[in-house]
Structure formats: C-alpha cells, structure tokens
Amino acid sequence: MNGRDAGFRGEIAKGLFAENPVFVKALGLCPALAVTNSAINGLAMGLATTFVLFMSSLLVSALRRLIPSQVRISTYIVVIATFVTVADFSLQALAPAIHREMGAFIALIVVNCLILGRAEAFASRHPVPAALGDALGMGAGFAGALILIGGVREVLGSGALFGFALFGPRFEPWVVMILPPGGFLVVGVLLLLFARRAAARERAAAAEERR
C-alpha cells in the first residue's frame, strides 16, 4: 500500500491482481489447497470467505473508534467467529451436499489469516466505503484464485469442469491431481507462472528505463 486512498473501485482492482491474497501475499493457503479438488468447491469456499470478510470489515471499520486497542484482536476474532457461524449454518441449510464435502473447513474460516489480517491492517484504519471495497477486492481475488486452482485440478484429475465432462469416455483421469499431492503441485506450478510473469514485467520495465 502506498499510503494514499485509491477509493472504492481502486481497492477492488488491487485485491484482484496486484495484491492477490493467495498468489502474491500467500495468505489463507490452507483452505486454498484443502477444498479445491473441484471448481465448484473453490467457488463455494470463495463466496463464504468473501461474505465473512465483507461483514467483518463492515463492522470493524464502523466500530473502529469504539474498540479499545488493547483488546482489539480478541474483538476482531469474536466478530469473525460470529459471521463464520452464520455462514456455516446458512450453507448447511442451503447447500447440504457442498457443506458435507467441505467438512470442518467452513468453520476453519475463523482462523484464515487473510480475514484477521485485513481487519487489523486495513478495516481498522479506514472509513467504511474503502474497507468494503478492500473486502470485496480481496474476497474476489481469493475466490478467483480458488476457482483457478480448483478448475485446473478438476480438469486434470477428473476430466471435467464445474461437473461437466470435457473429454469424453476415452480420457484417463490423472487421479493424483484431486488427491492432496496434486494441490501442492498445482499451486507450485501456478506460483512459478506468476513469478515468471513478474520477472518478465520487471525486465520490460528495466529495458524501458534504459532507453
């Protein structure tokens, strides 16, 4: 962050690319790997996290002058835990199949460092609109990353995307990709691609300056 307020729309764009929580900041890795064996699970996890992030940013930002700084972390955690409970119960009622598949990981949004990190680093020092923009951007960046990881793993591991078969019956699924090792390997390769893109950009910028 370079100190100035980028406004609502700027905050959203920032979360999607330049400060993408998963690929650039490496926050919230546990759920990003654990539930992404299909694109639809990644989408559900991304939406649930965005909801919790949005609501807790709203509350933390609105109450930022009332929360004494000595107990702020505990306050944030109670706020976050409350909204995670709401998300957990809602998902259980609305989409029981997905809720069963993700097991404890919805409840584990409480300890997702992305949410506490944004509450402490951003929402507690900015007015409500900027905090909401930041929450939406970070949430969208997180959901996007999860859908990307889940999509790659689903296409390779079960030959489908969002549950629709892609390759016909002769496709031999690469099963390891939907098992735990596949998560590490896919994220490793995606990180490599991101690093390569950043390196290419830097080289281009350096060449621009020399001219």
Partner: peptide, 8 residues
C-alpha cells in the same frame, strides 16, 4: 514455488 513442489 519450490517449497510447494517439494511439499507435493
């Protein structure tokens, strides 16, 4: 990136 591949 390498840490992830090792972990895989």
């Amino acid at each position: 990136a390498m840490s992830f591949l090792i972990a895989g």
